[in-house]
Lab assay of single mutants.
Amino acid sequence: MRKLSDELLIESYFKATEMNLNRDFIELIENEIKRRSLGHIISV
């Protein structure tokens, strides 16, 4: 996760939620978004 750019991480989050991927996977992405202080972009 740390090698993904912020932009790609956010894009991955939206794609994963759109495709209804595994909730655990989405939570991993959400946690990384929060760690990077980007939660305001997706309202996490």
Rank of each mutant, 00 (worst) to 15 (best):
M1Y: 04
M1L: 15
M1K: 02
M1H: 05
M1E: 03
M1S: 03
M1N: 03
M1I: 15
M1R: 02
R2H: 13
R2V: 09
R2E: 14
R2A: 15
R2D: 11
K3Y: 05
K3F: 06
K3S: 14
K3R: 05
K3E: 15
K3H: 12
K3C: 08
K3N: 15
K3T: 15
L4A: 04
L4D: 02
L4H: 03
L4K: 03
L4Y: 08
L4I: 08
L4G: 02
L4S: 03
L4N: 02
L4Q: 04
S5G: 05
S5Y: 03
S5R: 03
S5A: 06
S5E: 04
S5T: 11
S5Q: 03
S5F: 04
S5W: 03
D6R: 03
D6A: 04
D6I: 06
D6F: 05
D6W: 05
D6M: 05
D6T: 08
D6V: 05
D6S: 05
E7V: 10
E7I: 10
E7C: 06
E7K: 12
E7A: 13
E7M: 12
E7T: 08
E7P: 06
E7L: 10
E7G: 07
L8I: 11
L8Y: 09
L8N: 11
L8V: 11
L8E: 15
L8Q: 14
L8K: 12
L8M: 12
L8F: 10
L8P: 02
L8H: 10
L9N: 00
L9R: 01
L9I: 04
L9W: 01
L9F: 02
L9K: 01
L9A: 01
L9E: 00
L9T: 00
I10L: 12
I10G: 02
I10W: 05
I10N: 01
I10D: 01
I10F: 05
I10E: 02
I10Q: 02
I10T: 03
I10V: 07
I10S: 02
I10M: 07
E11Y: 09
E11W: 11
E11C: 08
E11T: 06
E11K: 10
E11H: 08
E11L: 12
E11N: 07
E11Q: 11
E11G: 04
E11V: 06
S12T: 15
S12E: 15
S12M: 15
S12D: 05
S12C: 08
S12H: 13
S12K: 07
S12Y: 15
S12W: 15
S12I: 15
S12P: 00
Y13H: 02
Y13P: 00
Y13F: 10
Y13W: 15
Y13D: 00
Y13K: 01
Y13G: 00
Y13S: 00
F14Y: 13
F14R: 10
F14G: 04
F14V: 10
F14S: 04
F14T: 07
K15G: 07
K15N: 13
K15V: 12
K15Y: 15
K15W: 15
K15S: 12
K15C: 14
K15M: 13
K15I: 13
K15R: 13
K15L: 14
K15T: 11
A16C: 05
A16E: 10
A16G: 05
A16Y: 08
A16M: 06
A16R: 04
T17Y: 13
T17C: 07
T17A: 10
T17L: 15
T17W: 14
T17K: 14
T17E: 11
T17H: 15
T17Q: 14
T17R: 13
E18N: 07
E18V: 05
E18L: 06
E18M: 07
E18I: 07
E18T: 04
E18D: 11
E18A: 11
E18P: 01
E18Y: 05
E18F: 05
M19Q: 13
M19G: 12
M19E: 14
M19P: 02
M19D: 12
M19I: 10
M19W: 03
M19Y: 05
M19R: 09
M19T: 09
M19V: 08
M19N: 13
N20H: 11
N20C: 08
N20K: 07
N20P: 08
N20I: 05
N20D: 12
N20W: 06
N20F: 07
N20L: 09
L21R: 07
L21E: 12
L21H: 09
L21C: 08
L21G: 09
L21D: 11
L21Q: 09
L21M: 13
L21I: 10
N22H: 12
N22Y: 06
N22V: 06
N22F: 07
N22Q: 11
N22R: 08
N22G: 13
N22E: 13
N22P: 15
N22W: 08
R23C: 07
R23K: 14
R23P: 13
R23T: 11
R23H: 15
R23Q: 12
R23W: 14
R23Y: 13
R23D: 10
R23M: 13
D24H: 10
D24V: 11
D24E: 14
D24Y: 10
D24S: 12
D24M: 10
D24T: 12
D24R: 09
F25A: 07
F25E: 08
F25I: 12
F25D: 06
F25V: 09
F25L: 14
F25T: 08
I26E: 01
I26N: 01
I26K: 03
I26T: 03
I26S: 02
I26P: 00
I26D: 00
E27G: 07
E27W: 08
E27T: 12
E27P: 02
E27H: 10
E27V: 13
E27S: 10
E27A: 12
E27I: 13
E27F: 09
L28K: 05
L28W: 05
L28N: 05
L28F: 05
L28H: 04
L28Y: 04
L28I: 11
L28T: 07
L28E: 11
L28S: 07
I29Q: 01
I29D: 00
I29C: 04
I29K: 00
I29M: 09
I29S: 01
I29N: 00
I29P: 00
I29W: 03
I29L: 12
I29G: 00
I29F: 09
E30W: 15
E30R: 11
E30P: 00
E30L: 14
E30M: 15
E30H: 09
E30V: 15
E30F: 14
E30K: 13
E30T: 12
N31S: 12
N31A: 14
N31C: 07
N31L: 14
N31P: 01
N31H: 10
N31Q: 14
N31K: 13
N31T: 12
N31V: 10
E32V: 02
E32P: 00
E32L: 02
E32Y: 01
E32Q: 01
E32R: 00
E32T: 01
E32M: 02
E32F: 02
E32W: 02
I33C: 03
I33P: 00
I33S: 00
I33M: 13
I33F: 03
I33K: 00
I33A: 02
I33R: 00
I33H: 00
I33W: 01
I33T: 01
I33G: 00
I33Y: 01
K34S: 07
K34I: 12
K34H: 12
K34R: 14
K34V: 09
K34D: 05
K34A: 08
K34W: 08
K34M: 12
K34T: 09
K34C: 06
R35I: 06
R35E: 05
R35Y: 05
R35K: 07
R35D: 04
R35Q: 05
R36L: 01
R36D: 00
R36C: 00
R36F: 01
R36K: 00
R36P: 00
R36S: 00
R36W: 01
R36E: 00
S37I: 05
S37R: 13
S37T: 06
S37Y: 09
S37D: 12
S37N: 15
S37A: 11
S37K: 14
S37F: 11
S37Q: 13
S37L: 11
S37M: 13
L38D: 02
L38W: 01
L38K: 03
L38R: 02
L38H: 02
L38M: 08
L38Q: 03
L38E: 02
G39S: 11
G39D: 13
G39R: 05
G39C: 11
G39Y: 09
G39T: 13
G39N: 10
H40T: 06
H40K: 07
H40Q: 07
H40L: 06
H40E: 08
H40Y: 09
I41C: 07
I41S: 06
I41G: 04
I41W: 09
I41L: 15
I41F: 11
I41Y: 09
I41P: 04
I41T: 07
I41A: 13
I41V: 11
I41K: 10
I42Y: 01
I42A: 04
I42H: 04
I42F: 02
I42P: 03
I42G: 03
I42S: 04
I42D: 03
I42C: 04
I42V: 08
I42M: 04
S43L: 11
S43C: 08
S43T: 15
S43V: 13
S43K: 14
S43R: 13
S43W: 02
S43Q: 14
V44E: 15
V44G: 13
V44H: 14
V44M: 14
V44Q: 15
V44W: 08
V44C: 07
V44D: 15
V44I: 13
V44T: 14
V44N: 15
V44L: 14
